[in-house]
Nucleic acid binder design. Structure first.
Lengths: 153, 153
DNA sequence: CATATAATGTTTCCATGTCAACAAAAAATA
DNA sequence: TATTTTTTGTTGACATGGAAACATTATATG
């Protein structure tokens, strides 16, 4: 297996595992909340004047999905909607006190995830770590180039 | 931003870009096939004596989901089932000629993606490349440990 | 200013995934 | 060997996300 294939395989399994782990922990600590719901609460908690379209863009899902999701979250009184006096089209969301509770729990969990993986970073030589990060940066730059060439975005 | 955060950010954007680039090509060349379907065909094509449980483990989904997926693929005559004479419980899958067609198309697309990104790997010092791969391996091993500790899978 | 176009959010239909219960067979255990 | 436990695969109920059609409002254009 050449380097690129090995890289891709490692990356894929890495992300599958991270997803699996965060999902289960989220489910135990935030029982009754789906990952997408928590993610939405997190996004609303971190940004001002969030609407359906912004959430959809940030989460890489359709507006329809977000519309349903926010409806559920409002029914459970975790978020609430508001509008601005000069715009009758856009609908914004903010957290309710209950929603802020979920938000804080999630923040704590996120710190736990970081702590869970920190040993990997601590036990790696700083120079090697920089090599890894630099490589990812170069790869990202290359893809930026490709995206530009293919006239995407 | 610390190393872990930088690593996470780079990884996320890297994958977003890869998804964006491969999306349009996959849609034109493998029209009518869902990512999960192609992924399953790929897995069956690459491994011997694959059963529902193995696919589920490899794709991080439930056995129920795989059971339905393989049923669909069999209905479309892309895969077929077989058993071994000394085991009446386990059911294995292999590709049909049509399934191999899809498999090959996917392989070719994959090669195109590889060629697109090969410059990044060619222009990286082999020693540094090994550092990157070794880091990912260590990270994966760490997560394997975590998954085991949480009694997942 | 009037009209065309774009943006925004919702809903319906549909596909697909999870969960949980289940049956059958294999493996472990007494 | 007989019984219990585990493994394997399937199914039905349910939830959820995508696609597309739609209504409403904002923005661009003439």
């Amino acid at each position: 297996m050449d380097a690129q294939q090995q890289f891709r395989t490692s990356l894929t399994t890495l992300l599958d595992k991270i997803t699996l782990l965060s999902k289960s922990q989220l489910e135990t600590q935030l029982k009754g909340f789906k990952p997408a719901e928590v993610h939405t609460i997190e996004f609303i908690g971190k940004h001002q004047d969030v609407n359906v379209t912004k959430i959809a863009d940030a989460m890489f899902v359709t507006r329809g999905a977000v519309s349903k999701l926010t409806k559920r979250l409002m029914a459970r009184e975790l978020i609430e909607r508001y509008q601005k006096p000069d715009n009758k089209k856009e609908i914004y969301f903010r957290l309710t006190p209950q929603g802020r509770g979920v938000f804080l729990t999630h923040e704590q969990l996120d710190q736990e995830f970081q702590q869970r993986d920190q040993p990997v970073f601590d036990q790696t030589d700083p120079v090697q770590l920089q090599t890894v990060l630099a490589f990812l940066d170069r790869y990202n730059q290359h893809l930026d180039h490709e995206i530009e060439q293919h006239h995407l975005q």
